[in-house]
Amino acid sequence: MDHNEYKTYLKHQYFHEIRSLQSVNDVISAFQKKIDIVETGLSESEAIFLKMTALNYINAHNNGLIKPNLDNLNFVPYEIVRNEKSDHYYNLMREATSDDERIIVIIESQLNEITSNCQELKVDLIIERGIDTSHVNQETPEFFTYLMLFDN
């Protein structure tokens, strides 16, 4: 399948799945209805994940309207409570790492960014967050990247 065929396939297969862009706080609220999520502090190793995330956000938003730096970012970490509701994510996490680490979600509401140390959950969070309609209307690369999340 060539590139254009794949784009056509993605639109046909997943267009009905597209969600309008929501705030990261709305995404957290939606996930709190599905799994148990609580605001938390970070361990030393999780703090390293946060620092890497902050640097990524600063680099990604360097040309945007908001000029982020480490001093003006407001990260809020959440823990996914380990129970039967979250077993799916913890089982996948256990396959990917040798540690028995907890799953965290980190939001930054000023940039409307959300991430997790569990790749599968991160994808689900991005799908739930949605995409700006301008990307959909213009069929931007971000639009096709979003559709590819469903395909993976």
Results as ranks from 00 to 15, higher is better:
128 E>L: 08
26 D>F: 07
139 E>F: 03
146 Y>M: 05
22 Q>G: 02
9 Y>P: 05
116 S>W: 07
51 K>L: 04
117 N>E: 07
144 F>R: 14
71 D>N: 15
106 I>F: 00
74 N>Y: 10
143 F>A: 08
74 N>D: 13
72 N>I: 11
137 N>I: 08
128 E>K: 15
14 Y>Q: 01
75 F>H: 12
28 I>G: 04
95 E>R: 15
109 S>M: 06
54 A>T: 13
49 F>S: 08
40 T>P: 01
53 T>N: 05
63 N>S: 10
133 T>P: 09
19 R>T: 06
100 D>V: 13
79 E>P: 01
76 V>L: 13
136 V>L: 11
97 T>L: 10
123 V>D: 11
15 F>E: 14
68 P>M: 03
57 Y>C: 09
53 T>D: 06
85 K>E: 07
59 N>T: 11
70 L>V: 12
118 C>M: 08
89 Y>A: 00
15 F>K: 15
6 Y>K: 14
114 I>P: 03
135 H>R: 05
71 D>L: 14
99 D>V: 12
131 I>T: 09
88 H>W: 10
107 I>T: 12
36 D>R: 15
50 L>S: 07
143 F>D: 04
126 I>P: 06
93 M>C: 07
121 L>R: 00
83 N>A: 04
140 T>K: 01
78 Y>W: 11
87 D>H: 09
13 Q>S: 08
33 K>P: 02
40 T>Y: 01
63 N>R: 15
149 L>Q: 14
